[in-house]
Structure formats: C-alpha cells, structure tokens
Design a protein around this nucleic acid. Structure first.
Length: 212
DNA sequence: GCGACAG
DNA sequence: ATCTTGTCGC
C-alpha cells in the first residue's frame, strides 16, 4: 500500500464534497457500522423512520478485509463492506449516517465523505473521538464547534447528562448546520444517534451468531 | 524527535 | 475495533 498515493486520492476526492443540502425531504434515515472477527467484517446497514425513529430494515454483509486500520485511512478498510451493506438495502432513505468522521479529517475526506461521494448520497459522519481539530470552548453546552485549520468542520455534542460526547461532521450533500440538526434529532436513549446504535447492535449480533 | 491518532 | 467479570448506576 502506498499511503502517499492514497492521501493524494483523498485530496482529489475531497474536492467533490458538496456542503449544501442535497435532499428535499427527510422521512427515512439510514445508518451503517461494522463489527469484526479477526479480518472478517460484519457490516450492518439499517433504515429508520425519521419521525418515529423506528426500525424499518436491517441488512448484513460479511466479507474479509485485508487493509489495516490506519488513522486517516479508515475508508480503505471499511468503505467497501459498508457500501456493500448499504447497496443491499431495499428501502430508500434520504440521509445516511456513518460511524466515523465526515469532513473533520486531515484531508477533508473522512469515511462518511468518502462513501457519500462514491454513492452520490447525502451523508453525515458521527465519531466517538476526534481525529483532528479541537473544541475551542470548555463549556458543558450541548453542542460546540470543532475547528481545524481555522475552519469549523463539525461539532461536539454531549447527548445529555452522563452520556459520552460524539463528534458530528458533514459527509457529503449536507450542510454543516444540517449535519448538527439531523444528528440531534436522532438522539433518544443512547449516546449514539438511533440509526448508528441500531447498526452497531445489528453488526455485533451478526458477529455473535456467526458459526466460524 | 515527540506526541496524537476515526474504527 | 477486540481481548474480558463483575459491578456501579439510571
């Protein structure tokens, strides 16, 4: 693997990211996550009713991965399994939530943006930790901006008292403001927005039920 | 060189 | 992410 080339690819692909809302309605929202058993990836894609946050569909795809986890290059390990699970959905959806960063990335192309550009779909990234950037405030406010190279690239949200912080950033075809509002609207009884909580749970269950 | 570092 | 039991808390 040539990280220099892959980094250049990310820089080129980042130019295709659109930070304006590319969806006309928001009735159904999808989520995608992966669980691992050695080098076997269990990718789960789900679709929920946006208003009710109720589960409409769950799809699982299992495939072997060879690329290692390298901070800043997560897409080259997880994008294919995730895309495969997403493309297996029969339900349509308006926005996709991805476990990982969107534009809050060293080269502006986290996995949510990578997948959003490749599939040409509106996407938002949600991560449990920062890859780059910083929060310039220390308040306990529910949502504060994340800065990277003097630009706001996303937000840190604290989903309520006694809950873990999450970092939100636009993937593709979603504005900075919308990425924040969409994720906040998906928060219910967990630190993660419902679509990602369900995808995470489904992926873990698939791994657990796997014979091998 | 040192520390940071999504899943 | 994964390796792992019980345990503290809502």
């Amino acid at each position: 693997m040539d990280l220099k080339k892959l980094a250049q690819l990310q820089v080129q692909m980042a130019k295709k990211v659109v930070l304006r809302d590319g969806f006309s309605k928001l009735e159904k929202i999808a989520g995608v996550d992966i669980a691992y058993k050695k080098n076997k990836a269990f990718a789960a894609a789900v679709v929920l009713d946006f208003r009710e946050m109720s589960l409409l569909e769950v799809r699982i795809r299992v495939m072997n991965v060879s690329f290692p986890y390298i901070p800043g290059f997560l897409s080259f390990r997880e994008a294919e399994p995730m895309k495969s699970a997403i493309l297996s959905l029969t339900q349509d959806y308006d926005v996709l939530l991805v476990n990982g960063h969107g534009i809050a990335h060293p080269r502006g192309l986290g996995i949510a943006s990578h997948i959003g550009v490749e599939l040409g779909v509106p996407s938002v990234g949600v991560a449990k930790g920062l890859l780059c950037g910083e929060v310039k405030e220390d308040s306990e406010k529910e949502a504060v901006p994340v800065f990277f190279e003097d630009e706001v690239v996303g937000y840190r949200i604290i989903p309520g008292r006694k809950r873990r912080p999450i970092y939100v950033s636009p993937g593709n075809l979603v504005s900075l403001k919308s990425s924040l509002e969409i994720v906040k609207a998906c928060l219910r009884r967990h630190s993660l927005p419902e679509p990602l909580y369900e995808a995470h749970r489904a992926a873990a269950e698939a791994k657990r039920k796997c014979a091998t």
